[in-house]
């Protein structure tokens, strides 16, 4: 599609002029990421989908007044985040958002990775638990930085935290994972498995 080559500003201009296929393109590019990002806050897929729907209806309806000068992705993520947190808090007034996180999802998803990658369970289990144990904000910052490739500026604005603190969150998070990795016995075994596939390239 021609939209791939457009910059966000150009793409947004098309939407602002009422081009619905451009709007659809934005949806198809980002909806999946938003959906996944939603699991940082809740396991309730209906809630996540509701919010995605509202965010997109909102940007369409305010297309004439909305001026996206940063990235569209950033705008979507910040709208989405604000709205999800609001609704999750309503959904569980008496629980903090930290409690609301289901820990099971971490374990289950990690199991899948293990199977996919043939990594023996006991050794990498440590990494899984270490990530599980990281504070939510550290997890989120790492996720946004490395998995969604947002800039520090964007993350700072998104999470409402100063830029140096974002650096700090990420640094601390990776640091605790590193300690776990260096103390575990998994390296020899896993790296071994990892190597012989490369060896035959």
């Amino acid at each position: 599609m021609k939209f791939h080559t457009l910059k966000d500003i150009e793409l947004w201009k098309l939407v602002a002029d009422g081009d619905q296929t451009a709007f659809d393109h934005i949806y198809l590019t980002h909806a999946k990421d938003l959906y996944k990002y939603g699991f940082r806050f809740t396991q309730d897929t209906e809630l996540i989908k509701d919010v995605i729907q509202d965010v997109f209806i909102h940007i369409w309806e305010s297309k004439n007044v909305l001026f996206i000068n940063k990235s569209i992705k950033f705008y979507l993520f910040s709208c989405f985040r604000r709205e999800v947190i609001k609704r999750v808090n309503v959904a569980c007034k008496y629980e903090s958002i930290e409690d609301y996180h289901s820990k099971i999802s971490w374990e289950v998803s990690f199991q899948e990775i293990l199977e996919e990658n043939q990594i023996s369970l006991d050794s990498t289990h440590k990494l899984s638990r270490a990530i599980d144990a990281l504070p939510l904000r550290q997890k989120e910052a790492i996720y946004l930085r490395y998995l969604q490739e947002l800039t520090y500026d964007e993350i700072s604005e998104l999470m409402g935290v100063q830029i140096p603190s974002i650096y700090n969150l990420i640094f601390k998070g990776i640091k605790s994972l590193k300690t776990v990795l260096s103390h575990s016995d998994f390296t020899s075994k896993v790296i071994f498995l990892f190597f012989f596939n490369l060896h035959w390239y």
Binding site: K36, R40, F110, I131, L147
Partner: peptide
């Protein structure tokens, strides 16, 4: 591991 959190849509 970070990628695996959450379901794919």
């Amino acid at each position: 591991e970070f990628q695996a959190t959450g379901e794919d849509w």
